[in-house]
Amino acid sequence: KKYKVVEVKENKDGTVELVVENENGEKKKITLSKEELDKLKAGDTVELK
């Protein structure tokens, strides 16, 4: 499934919390490390299994 990044929030521990949404409007929260996030920004599309 493809999800669009709608919100990006940095946590104090250096991880980043993303809120992503698919075309049905379903939202998910995922947490990434700073390194994983470096290639993402709001409006990008991510694929989740």
Results as ranks from 00 to 15, higher is better:
residue 28 K to P: 00
residue 32 L to C: 12
residue 39 K to W: 06
residue 3 Y to H: 10
residue 28 K to D: 07
residue 10 E to M: 09
residue 34 K to Q: 10
residue 8 V to R: 03
residue 6 V to E: 01
residue 45 T to V: 10
residue 26 E to I: 11
residue 42 A to H: 06
residue 33 S to L: 14
residue 39 K to A: 05
residue 30 I to M: 05
residue 46 V to E: 11
residue 35 E to Y: 07
residue 35 E to M: 13
residue 35 E to T: 12
residue 18 L to T: 01
residue 18 L to R: 00
residue 38 D to K: 07
residue 12 K to H: 13
residue 24 N to W: 14
residue 43 G to D: 10
residue 16 V to A: 11
residue 21 E to W: 03
residue 1 K to W: 01
residue 44 D to Q: 06
residue 1 K to F: 03
residue 38 D to R: 05
residue 35 E to A: 13
residue 47 E to H: 13
residue 38 D to W: 01
residue 49 K to R: 10
residue 12 K to T: 12
residue 25 G to K: 04
residue 46 V to K: 02
residue 12 K to S: 14
residue 35 E to W: 07
residue 40 L to I: 15
residue 37 L to N: 14
residue 27 K to A: 07
residue 45 T to R: 01
residue 9 K to Q: 10
residue 42 A to N: 11
residue 23 E to M: 07
residue 18 L to W: 02
residue 40 L to V: 15
residue 25 G to Y: 03
residue 8 V to T: 06
residue 46 V to A: 01
residue 6 V to Y: 03
residue 45 T to P: 01
residue 37 L to S: 15
residue 15 T to F: 06
residue 6 V to R: 02
residue 15 T to C: 08
residue 44 D to K: 04
residue 39 K to L: 11
residue 21 E to L: 10
residue 23 E to T: 08
residue 20 V to W: 03
residue 46 V to R: 01
residue 44 D to C: 12
residue 13 D to V: 01
residue 31 T to I: 10
residue 21 E to R: 03
residue 17 E to T: 09
residue 16 V to Y: 13
residue 40 L to Q: 04
residue 37 L to A: 15
residue 41 K to G: 07
residue 23 E to A: 07
residue 21 E to C: 08
residue 36 E to L: 09
residue 13 D to T: 02
residue 38 D to E: 12
residue 2 K to A: 05
residue 46 V to Y: 00
residue 46 V to L: 13
residue 13 D to C: 07
residue 34 K to L: 12
residue 4 K to M: 11
residue 33 S to T: 08
residue 16 V to H: 05
residue 3 Y to P: 06
residue 41 K to N: 08
residue 36 E to A: 09
residue 14 G to Y: 01
residue 9 K to S: 09
residue 43 G to N: 10
residue 2 K to R: 09
residue 1 K to L: 10
residue 12 K to A: 09
residue 3 Y to A: 07
residue 7 E to I: 09
residue 10 E to D: 13
residue 10 E to Y: 06
residue 17 E to Q: 07
residue 11 N to M: 11
residue 31 T to G: 03
residue 46 V to M: 05
